[in-house]
Amino acid sequence: MKKAQIYIVLLLITTLSCKDKVSEKLKNIALVEPKTELITEINTLDNLEEQKKKEGDNKLDLTFSPIDSTQYFDYKKKYSNDVTIDSLIINKENSFFTLSIKNTEKKFSCGIDFNNCTYYKGYLNSLNKYVLTYCGVLYCGTSLLDKNTGIQNYLESPFDTECETPSLSKDKNKLISYSSSVFDKESFIGLYKKNTETQEIDFENYETFNTSDWRINEIIWVDDNFIALKIYDKYGGITGDKLMNVRYLKSKIE
C-alpha cells in the first residue's frame, strides 16, 4: 500500500514537472515570435523614415520631352545594361540556387508557392554584383550583392514591389533604378552616382524622382547624360497583360 502511494506521489510530481517545462517552452515561443516581428517592423519604419529624409534632401530634377517609338528603339539598339543572365539558374518554388560569393557557394531559397523567395535577376558585370529580388508575404525588394565582398546594397523604392533590373550609364558612372506601383499610376526613379574618391557607385547617397502621371516599363541610357523611358498607364486588353497607352520620353540627367 505504501509503495503504491509513493508511486502515485512520484507520478504526480513528474506530471507537474513536465507541464511546467512544456508551459515554459510555449511561453518562450510566444515571446520570441512577436519580438522578431516587432524588430522587423521597427527596422522597416526606420528605413522608411531614412528614405523619406534622403528623398527630401536629394530630389532628382527631370524634364521630360516626348519622342516617337522609332527614336526609342534606335537608342535601345545602341544600349546594353551590362547584365548577364545565367540560363542555368532557374527560379523555382520549394527549391534553391547557389551563387559564388567570396569564393564560397551560397544558397538562396524559395519556399512553397514562392513564399519568402529570392529571385536571381542576373549579374551586373561592370560592378561585379548579382541582381537579386526577395519577396516576402506583403512586400518585395531588390538588392545588388557583391560577388567579391559579399556586401549587399539595397535599391530604394517607396512601393511594396521590387525595383526592375537597374540601368548602368555608358560611362559606368551612374546607375538608374526604377519601380512602379501595382495599385496606382505612380512611378519612382533612383539615381546613384560614382563617388570620385572611392571610384565606386555610392548607394548611400542618391537622388529620387516621383510621379503620378504614368508607370515605367523600361529605362535606357541614350548617352552619359540622357535617358529614355518607355511608359504606360496600366495593364489591360483581353488577357490583362497588355500595356495600355504606351509612349516614350527623354530627359537629361543634370
Results as ranks from 00 to 15, higher is better:
Leu60Ser: 11
Cys18His: 08
Ser23Asn: 14
Ser187Lys: 01
Leu12Trp: 13
Thr133Ser: 14
Gln5Gly: 02
Leu45Tyr: 13
Lys27Ala: 08
Val22Arg: 06
Thr142Asn: 01
Glu156Trp: 03
Thr40Asp: 15
Asn153Cys: 00
Pro34Met: 04
Thr211Asp: 05
Ile13Ala: 13
Tyr72Gly: 03
Asp184Gln: 12
Glu218Ser: 12
Tyr232Asp: 04
Arg247Trp: 02
Glu37Phe: 02
Phe183Ser: 13
Leu60Lys: 09
Trp221Gly: 01
Ile13Gln: 10
Lys3Ile: 08
Asn47Lys: 09
Asp20Asn: 12
Asn103Leu: 09
Tyr139Asp: 14
Asp184Glu: 15
Ser23Tyr: 11
Phe203Ala: 02
Lys234Arg: 13
Tyr178Ala: 00
Asn28Thr: 02
Asp61Ile: 13
Val182Ile: 11
Tyr192Phe: 15
Asp202Gln: 04
Lys194Pro: 01
Gln51Thr: 12
Ser179Tyr: 01
Leu155Ser: 01
Ser95Pro: 07
Asp74Leu: 05
Asp224Tyr: 02
Ser169Ala: 05
Lys53Met: 11
Cys163Gln: 07
Cys163Thr: 12
Phe183Trp: 12
Pro34Ser: 09
Leu45Ser: 13
Lys106Val: 04
Ile6Arg: 14
Met244Val: 14
Val83Ser: 06
Glu24Lys: 10
Thr165Arg: 05
Asp171Trp: 00
Lys170Ile: 06
Gly240Phe: 03
Ser251Gly: 10
Glu50Lys: 11
Phe188Thr: 00
Ile238Trp: 07
Leu88Asn: 15
Ile176Asn: 00
Glu200Gln: 13
Phe209Val: 01
Glu254Leu: 10
Leu229Lys: 02
Asn116Pro: 04
Asn103Phe: 06
Asn94Val: 00
Phe64Leu: 10
Thr104His: 12
Thr98His: 05
Phe64Glu: 06
Ile42Phe: 10
Thr196Leu: 08
Leu144Glu: 00
Phe226Asn: 15
Pro66Tyr: 11
Lys19Met: 12
Leu12Glu: 14
Phe73Glu: 15
Asn81Met: 04
Thr133Glu: 12
Asn128Gly: 13
Glu156Gly: 05
Leu88Ile: 07
Ser95Gly: 07
Ser17Trp: 09
Lys76Trp: 01
Gly122Pro: 00
Lys185Tyr: 11
Leu31Ile: 10
Asn94Arg: 08
Val83Gly: 05
Lys19Thr: 14
Leu62Gln: 05
Thr142Cys: 02
Asp113Tyr: 10
Lys52Cys: 10
Thr211His: 02
Gln199Ile: 07
Lys76Thr: 01
Leu10Gln: 12
Ser179Glu: 06
Leu88Val: 07
Ile6Lys: 14
Asp46Cys: 06
Ile112Asn: 15
Ile253Leu: 11
Ile67Met: 08
Lys242His: 09
Ile67Pro: 03
Phe114Ser: 10
Leu127Met: 09
Lys102Phe: 10
Lys52Val: 09
Phe183Ile: 07
Ile89Cys: 04
Lys54His: 10
Glu162Ala: 13
Pro34Leu: 04
Tyr154Gln: 11
Leu155Ile: 03
Gly150Tyr: 06
Tyr134Ser: 09
Lys106His: 08
Asn91His: 06
Trp221Ser: 02
Pro34Ile: 02
Tyr130His: 07
Lys252Val: 08
Ile8Gly: 05
Phe108Pro: 00
Tyr123Lys: 05
Leu168Ala: 03
Phe226Met: 13
Phe226Glu: 15
Gln51Trp: 08
Glu41Pro: 00
